[in-house]
Design a protein around this nucleic acid. Structure first.
Lengths: 218, 218
DNA sequence: CGAGCAAGCGGACCGGAGTCCGTTTAACTT
DNA sequence: AAGTTAAACGGACTCCGGTCCGCTTGCTCG
């Protein structure tokens, strides 16, 4: 007879990343993989993407992904940790274009335009990107805390915080960045448009309004 | 050989509540229960609460709750739908005090104070309440979209939106309410304090700052 | 080039969420 | 009070996420 909870494997709640205290911009993790592992990783992501296109993200099972990639189930877990990890990797992979656009694309989103203009351009782009991939994004949110460890999220936050600093906006840049991003969160956008009848244009309007008010000097 | 996805039980993604288009203040759902069902519901909530106190929310299994309440497993699912539903019910139940405080408690949170003051008082109270129950709150967030159907969430949103209207704040009240509430979301607060070294006082400060800036007339 | 070994692999296995359906029972009807 | 019915009950069953551990294989160093 064991204790009432489950004494085996006292898991220190997963704890995410130890290097969370590093500056937010440290987003690189090359993670040297052995040749076969790297190949299988790609195979798995492709298989998952293919399966997800056919059925929903909800119907994606780890076993089917493994089978479709021609590897064992254990391999999927070894590579991605768990189901959420796989979904996050998949989602993260699809952010490439958006990231390129605001990191190094042409103005007004990319560098070259004044910070406030870049901020204004950022919101609508994110809203549209998230609408396009909402299923995957929502599915990858099973653990709310893990969101903050997702590279794409961290990059957005540090990017917006940087723009806020450049625009000399008063207040705590990181907190403000989270607040701004929260107003165009995928789940919220989905709720407001689907259940509450708001239009994308109203959301754009709300974003511009918010940026303007925060940026305004008293 | 079946289709590639899973043709059985084509579940129309759960769809939450059909009455989501009703005015946000409609929060009542008396839900007449048969005597035995009502009794078992209480037994189950008590059992779950007791078990959760002993072990974490993560270690709470539906079967153990059923056993501790002396009912069958099927009964738990019939009553609460799924695990998330049980956790939401549990969490919702614990919001009573906070809700009483901002709905009918003494000023500055309760009625009697000017709307802007009530807004200022609201944030810190929520932050503290969420810190106290973060485990349950976070655990009940498995499905990000369902959050907006949780009575406690809807009540907060409609309350803040009302205060914003009363304070004659420009902009879309509901969107602004979500934005404000997003800045003190349980997961965000947890992240900022645990991983990013912010203090509760800084978060309070951020809240007051935000409310002030939104409330300020140009 | 060959040996050592850490990393990768895979599939049997386990536990818990969610379903199903035959049985029981509270509430209402006459 | 007995009959009727819709709701509630319970536990066997299925399916999937996650673990475990013995086997294999790509790298590295002598």
């Amino acid at each position: 007879m064991t204790g009432p909870c489950d004494p085996s494997s006292s898991r220190p709640p997963e704890s995410g990343d130890a290097r969370a205290t590093l500056p937010l911009v440290t987003l690189d993790e090359p993670e040297r993989l052995r040749a076969d592992a790297a190949r299988n990783r790609t195979l798995l992501l492709e298989a998952a993407s293919r399966l997800m296109a056919g059925c929903g993200a909800t119907n994606l099972t780890m076993e089917s992904v493994a089978a479709a990639a021609g590897v064992g189930k254990g391999t999927v877990f070894r590579r991605f940790g768990d189901r959420t990890g796989l979904l996050i990797a998949l989602m993260d992979h699809r952010e490439g274009l958006l990231q390129a656009a605001f990191l190094s694309g042409p103005p007004p989103m990319g560098p070259g335009a004044p910070a406030v203009e870049r901020l204004h351009a950022f919101g609508p782009a994110v809203i549209r990107h998230e609408r396009e991939h909402h299923e995957l994004i929502l599915a990858s949110r099973a653990d709310p805390l893990r969101t903050y460890a997702v590279p794409a999220t961290r990059l957005r936050v540090s990017h917006v915080a940087m723009l806020l600093r450049q625009a000399h906006v008063a207040g705590h840049p990181e907190l403000l960045a989270h607040t701004l991003l929260g107003s165009i969160d995928a789940a919220l956008v989905r709720h407001l448009t689907t259940d509450r009848g708001m239009s994308i244009e109203q959301l754009d309007q709300g974003w511009h309004d918010l940026v303007s008010r925060l940026g305004a000097r008293p």
